[in-house]
Design a protein around this nucleic acid. Structure first.
Lengths: 101, 101
DNA sequence: TAATACACTTACTAAAAGTAAGTAGCATTT
DNA sequence: AAATGCTACTTACTTTTAGTAAGTGTATTA
């Protein structure tokens, strides 16, 4: 590694370049969602969704809230850090509309 | 899959969520680079870099140009479509500077 | 009593990534 | 003439990650 790109951008891209992460965040930009809602909106398995949400929670991007109802309800919402990705997604949408298809 | 998110954004995130893809594009935003330059600027193996560059070429994001010098020189540059990702990366940089570390 | 709902886990298989060595073409060095 | 080096890859193999399917616990409803 001769020279280094911006380490913060590297870290950011490392986060977003895990499969499903971007789409989960994209979905949560529309407001909090429960586990089964995310699961059914994406072709992701429960196993991996659980894993990804834990990672995002650990990174401070997603907040997990448990409602002790029956059956239990668990909601996932973006933190301030997570919501900060909105402009990135907005630009990505614009790019996609211009260049995809 | 109950409802669907924007298919173009899904496609865009599918591209960017392959490991190294984002960083390769981020690097090429600084101008064309040859194979060994990208290889030494990222902790990526030649095997995978070769694979990623082929994918990006196929998606019309990167252009490959061979200079028949000795030893041969191969340069990779962003196409218009690839360069269109600049605003996305700019926003990502801003997010990273604000929220990473 | 059996079935259903939700949010996971666990066990297993398939695909992707990582590592290391090899190839090809040509030029310079020994 | 043979060996070495440069560049841009491939190939073979191992490890890690993702995908699939079935199971768990709790409580309600049929």
């Amino acid at each position: 590694m001769l020279h280094q790109l911006c380490p913060r951008v590297e870290k950011a891209l490392e986060l977003l370049s895990k499969r499903w992460t971007g789409l989960i965040i994209y979905q949560l930009l529309n407001g909090p969602h429960r586990f089964c809602e995310i699961e059914s909106s994406l072709p992701i398995s429960g196993r991996l969704l659980s894993e990804r949400l834990k990672e995002l929670e650990k990174e401070g991007i997603v907040n997990r809230e448990v409602f002790p109802e029956v059956p239990v309800r668990v909601e996932y919402a973006l933190t301030e850090k997570g919501a900060g990705l909105a402009p990135v997604m907005k630009e990505l949408e614009e790019w996609a509309n211009k260049f995809i298809n």
